[in-house]
């Protein structure tokens, strides 16, 4: 088996339909990320007329995102040599993340079914997994465990609130548990980033730059932020638990505002 497995070759059964990044970016109506569209949106709550349907579409996005998170964590177990490339303990964390993401796949496929979504009903793009292809383990870990898993915190918290407002005990319960795991994954990212770059300022800077690139991608169209029009709300409390500083969270909020402003509505 090769080291570094390309996103285009991620194995899926016949129900899944892949949307290329090119197609996604070339959509003149604005690219979509996880159930959101290029249009000016508002915070995802059940009170919106199309709230339940948007949550339903987002849940499918979460489901395929979890598959990619599982695949990414698995590849990090395999792509790097233990001790020479990465410490043994970091690999153990990645294996633990595999188990967690496998459970998240199980949870989100059950939730999708609960919300009336079928596997493969929506197109899948592999943006998430692509961040997990970075050949530098420190950059990969930062892009995946701080940017993407950080996004997962925001998404799950938004969905947990959605479930709570809608009075949907199944959604609220499941998101609560997934949220706990994602905080753990982001903390892994924060801890390992600190540890692996202890005496290497340059690598730390590069890793944080890569994190910004990934964060920016997922702030697209103002998809995530802490203003009322952001469908997915930035979650300060859980990000702090996971090792984000106030300044880092401020930066992401600002980046989201800029990304939203750049979008032509």
């Amino acid at each position: 088996m090769r080291k570094i497995f390309p996103a285009e070759e991620l194995a899926r059964d016949s129900r899944f339909v892949r949307q290329s990044n090119e197609d996604r970016m070339n959509d003149p109506r604005g690219a979509r990320v996880g159930g959101s569209t290029g249009e000016k949106l508002s915070k995802l709550t059940p009170n919106l007329p199309n709230g339940p349907d948007r949550a339903r579409a987002l849940m499918h996005g979460i489901f395929v995102g979890e598959i990619q998170a599982l695949e990414g964590a698995g590849r990090t177990c395999y792509d790097f040599e233990t001790t020479t490339d990465v410490p043994f303990a970091m690999k153990l964390d990645m294996a633990r993340q595999c188990w967690d993401e496998a459970r998240h796949c199980e949870i989100s496929v059950a939730l999708a079914e609960h919300m009336g979504t079928e596997i493969g009903e929506f197109a899948e793009n592999t943006l998430l997994y692509q961040a997990a292809c970075n050949p530098d383990p420190v950059l990969r870990l930062t892009g995946v465990n701080r940017a993407l898993e950080g996004l997962a915190i925001d998404v799950f918290n938004t969905m947990k609130e959605f479930g709570s407002i809608a009075g949907d005990p199944v959604l609220e319960f499941c998101e609560d548990w997934m949220l706990a795991d994602e905080v753990t994954h982001v903390k892994m990212g924060s801890d390992w980033l600190r540890e692996l770059t202890l005496n290497d300022k340059e690598r730390l800077t590069k890793a944080l730059e890569f994190q910004k690139v990934v964060d920016r991608l997922f702030s697209f169209n103002g998809f995530r932020g802490e203003d009322d029009e952001n469908p997915i709300q930035l979650t300060r409390r859980f990000r702090e638990l996971a090792g984000f500083s106030d300044e880092e969270i401020d930066d992401i909020a600002q980046m989201s505002r800029e990304a939203a402003a750049e979008t032509v509505h």
């Binding site: 059940p46 349907d53 919300m115 009336g116 949907d168």
Partner: peptide
């Protein structure tokens, strides 16, 4: 065809 989807919408407006 999407009975489950309609049911989810209905539950959101009428309670789970």
């Amino acid at each position: 065809t999407q009975k489950k989807r309609r049911q989810y919408q209905f539950r959101n407006r009428h309670g789970f």
